[in-house]
């Protein structure tokens, strides 16, 4: 079995993660819009768009580095780039909390 296919699946998993963040962004914008909170609409859209872009960029960067590298060391994951995802999750959660508290009653 080729590790090239495993690398491709990993790259696709990064793309799906970026899309998941975009989906949360869309849900939060819609929820904040329903709650008539224009500041939260703008903040949700801006923050989650940037986060999704960063995650997509990180995945692309990892994929490019691995395609051009050789040997097992080239497959090694970049810790700071991986750390981006839990940070994005926590920021998304904080945005979601802000929207939930503005809409929940």
């Amino acid at each position: 079995m080729s590790s090239g296919l495993a690398q491709q699946r990993t790259s696709l998993a990064w793309t799906r993660s970026a899309l998941a963040i975009l989906a949360i962004g869309a849900a939060l914008v819609k929820a904040a819009w329903e709650a008539r909170a224009p500041v939260l609409v703008a903040a949700s859209a801006a923050v989650l768009l940037v986060l999704a872009g960063l995650v997509w960029w990180a995945g692309e960067r990892e994929d490019r580095r691995r395609r051009t590298g050789t040997g097992p060391a080239a497959a090694r994951a970049s810790r700071p780039l991986l750390l981006l995802l839990p940070v994005a999750s926590v920021i998304s959660a904080l945005m979601a909390l802000a929207v939930a508290l503005s809409t929940g009653h």
């Binding site: 998941a20 949360i24 849900a27 929820a31 999750s89 998304s92 979601a96 929207v99 939930a100």
Partner: peptide
């Protein structure tokens, strides 16, 4: 994790 956050946001809205 992102799915849970999205579900929470959807429930709130």
């Amino acid at each position: 994790a992102l799915g849970l956050i999205a579900a929470g946001a959807a429930a709130a809205a």
